[in-house]
Amino acid sequence: MRLAGILIALVAVLFTVSLISGYSNTSMADSLAALIRDNGTPLSVVMREIRLPRALLAMMIGISLGLSGAAMQGYLRNPLAEPGLIGVSGAAALGAVLAIQSGFALSYALALPLSALGMAVLAVLAILFLAGPRGSSITLILAGIAISALAGALTSLVLNLSPNPFAAAEIVFWMMGSLADRSFQHVWLALPFMVVGWALLLSLGRGLDALTLGEDAAEAMGMRMTRMRLVLILGIAASVGAATAVAGVIGFVGLIVPHLLRGIVGARPSVLLWASALGGAAMVLAADIAVRELFPTRDLKLGVLMAMIGAPLFLHLIYKTRKEMA
């Protein structure tokens, strides 16, 4: 419980800092006052229409990615599983790009998250099929590389074929993710899918705890494995699909956060689930603050920062599990 308090306080602080991070040099008090009361100034517009949706999205996406990472690692009992690394995010990005470039997303707003969700489901199914419920790390990672590469290539193909001269440059956004200049439209589009995804994933806690004793023991305790798998697939696809549809692929969050928290909460997947959700929110908020403070006018992509922190950790984890992989 103390951990929950600390994490919630951390998210609250980072959320506030995110709200006051930006290009303008206005004081914190003025900014927050303009946020709470619409005083007709341009600062109010900036706070309410640009910064608030941005901070909310960072939090929502962090929860989605942290939670998905923890759930997937719990289910596969493999610390290397992460939506970005195994291609689920990449596939969701492909779905989003297809919806946008085909014009579907214009005629029917929900087409964007639905299409991302659909492709994410396909990717999770492919991973589970290729790596199996207890696949070794090596199959899991190889399957992930293949799916990521395919999804990335198809995304690039679709964007290169677009008649829009800016579309090809967008490949970077879809591969690396960014929250720049998002609006409340994106919040409302993603939130319903994310909430459903979070509910599904959090409901897995007890099952994942039982699964630590092995599949047979879990079934003996009354867990239905097929149902669990279905809930996992839908939960991950809904959260990661919605997150990717509005912000592109932000990798490594689901890898770093559970890894950092596992040492504190111990090997209890049910606790790790909500802890990773809060930790993910803190991580993405912090990263989004950093990209704005480090390079204010450069729109540095979130994924760049996450990869710089995440990739060394990933290498470390591979090094640690190399015996199993050999």
Binding site: I100, S162, P163, A169, S183
Partner: peptide
């Protein structure tokens, strides 16, 4: 507005632009 869709053009339709009096 160029034909086709691009996220690069999202900034031109951001609600904040219309919120200024």
């Amino acid at each position: 507005d160029y034909p086709g869709q691009a996220r690069a053009e999202n900034n031109l339709t951001h609600p904040a632009l219309r919120a200024l009096d």
